[in-house]
Design a protein around this nucleic acid. Structure first.
Lengths: 204, 204, 204, 204
DNA sequence: AGTTAAACGAGACGGTACGTCAGGTCTTCAT
DNA sequence: ATGAAGACCTGACGTACCGTCTCGTTTAACT
């Protein structure tokens, strides 16, 4: 890191994001303040405001520095299994500190900060969603899913219940819950066909 | 309401909630303050704090005073149609001012206020969900849905995508979107049946 | 003081002014800050801003609380002696801490704060000057001074050199310097009359 | 100045002082900042700090660059007239922008900046005073003034009222006021000699 | 009907944080 | 190697609300 062009700047940026995550974990998002981050880092407030326009923007960057947005997931040919792998990973991220609670608070903040909402979508939600959409598209192209399936809608149906649990009922997310969602979606909600029970799990 | 025992109290309560909604609409949740509500109402701050413990609690009450939680929906025998009716109503509420934007901000606030989250669930989310669950249960009991369908899960799958759109992508909710969700869920995501044996893959 | 109408308010006012003077003495006017006064008093900044619009206004009040503007000086019939008494008192005030240095700084501040300059004149300079003018008027009315003497001008000629020393050359003020000024003014600057050398110090 | 050894330096120095005066006139001393001067000049702050230790020092230099301290005044033999000439010139300088208001603010700053006060005395006040003292000395040596007249004191008595008006009452200086001061001092403040006995109280 | 306790408006108060500004020191880069 | 550009820490600014706390003043419930 000695050859970094803007040595001083990059150092400060990292230190500030580190302090933000520390403080966020220690005292929670609500009590997190730019003032506090500045004090913890030994930075001037201006140094923070020069880089981020708000507490939310700072935290978003800090969180994303934790979660290097990762490579694409492998395609094993089994849609349901591959989606499960993806969603497990997402749930693991969202369920555990420090990412989980702070991310949740950030989504909260985004509800009354349009700019933050846009950034959050662009930098986290959409990239995540794209992976799911890509896997669904592959499956559809291979005839495993209905050819006129709306991929974005399918993604929303997969993700929605998880965010519902995270943001609304605020019960902990678990792999088991993911399994139940996937099972329900691939099994269908209609009455089980009596005959050929083999079809009862057509695509899972 | 003229016969209310604590006349003065109830009057003030209503006036304060009214001012809260007005201000909330005018300047948005973020800039809404108890100080401001007090000034607008001509009430002392104490009078507000005596009734509500926080901005969120005040707004929750104020919003609920708008939406008298309504009676149960009729059961026409057609699950999909009845659910559509229910969800249309919910979407109409969440999509339009003043309820929509303020409710959205309130859900945001709930992300870093456990008490508020609990109250929100108890007073709005759960009652709403219960109606959906009740209708699903009726359908299941009549054999229209799989007998081992997890009703809460089904409700989450129906609601999740809507909240996802409201809170995450923040695109406007529409009846058309509801239709697409219902269609997808009831039609299934699997490949379309080639022959008349279409029912062989009923909902996957 | 138990019967003071606005007990709480008056207490705070006094405590803040006391802290202002203490801090002013300890660290000097330049480093004096409203922030610091608030911290020292244990008061909120708002409590100070509610009463005073600026550091200068606060210090002016604080200084004047030290110098209860005092009663009129006696008229012994001897103008020069009476003026000396008055001016000695003024010089004693301006020469000694805590009043002197802080007052001097305040006059400095008044150079780029018109409001403060006006307040300073109204509350300190003019009252002081009025006493001198009053004594001069009495002398003039008794024929001890030229009947067409411009009293304000005379006052300025008496006061000017003292402020010149205080503000410009910044050498310490002394009774001896006052004596020299009075002697010079009452003796005149013209050449001594050769005869009747008894007149050489007629009124000093 | 083209032959100055450090050409670039001198250019920058002049540009900075020019910008200082411009800004000082435009926004006043209180709002004048080294930051602002740097921005206006297109200079780095360091370039300014390398030359001047404070805002006051910079302004002092800038002002003196306006008022090349001038040659000695002629001696016409008439003390009063010559002093009037000198003082008119001083008053003209102090009464008019840009010098006047900025100089006044500078004297203000000097009240809480000992270094500046010293520099101000050395570079402006004393040179000015010396001219007055020199003229008075010549008059005294020629027997026009009392042989034991304290020259510095006399200078202070002449200058004091003017600075009093400039700094304390903050009324505009005028030639007419100068005339009145000189008249009062040279005429004396005692009662007009009607009869010969008038001299019995020559200057009281 | 008079008394009295509460609810009330008003807003002072100590706090915390805001976002801004300038000070004075420092590093980096271009000329 | 001088100077512009500006990052950096520091400290104070003046503002906004928070939630708590007196104040008197209604108001209406209970003697």
């Amino acid at each position: 890191m000695t050859d970094t062009p803007h040595r001083r700047g990059a150092d400060r940026t990292e230190a500030i994001m580190r302090a933000t995550l520390e403080l966020g974990q220690e005292i929670g998002y609500a009590k997190l303040s730019i003032e506090g981050v500045a004090a913890r880092t030994g930075a001037g407030k201006h140094t923070i405001y020069r880089r981020w326009s708000s507490k939310g923007a700072l935290l978003l960057d800090s969180l994303l520095s934790l979660h290097e947005p990762g490579l694409d997931y492998p395609d094993t040919g089994d849609v349901a299994a591959d989606l499960r792998t993806q969603i497990y990973a997402a749930v693991d991220l969202l369920a555990a500190p420090p990412f989980g609670p702070l991310f949740q608070a950030l989504v909260g903040e985004a509800q009354h900060d349009r700019q933050l909402a846009a950034a959050l979508n662009e930098r986290f939600i959409t990239p995540q969603a794209n992976k799911t959409v890509a896997r669904l598209r592959a499956a559809r192209d291979q005839g495993q899913l209905s050819s006129d399936l709306d991929l974005d809608l399918a993604m929303a149906i997969l993700s929605g219940p998880l965010y519902f649990q995270l943001l609304i009922t605020q019960e902990p997310l678990s792999h088991e819950y993911v399994d139940r969602i996937l099972a329900a979606l691939f099994t269908g909600m209609g009455p089980r066909p009596r005959t050929r029970t083999s079809r009862s799990r057509p695509a899972a």
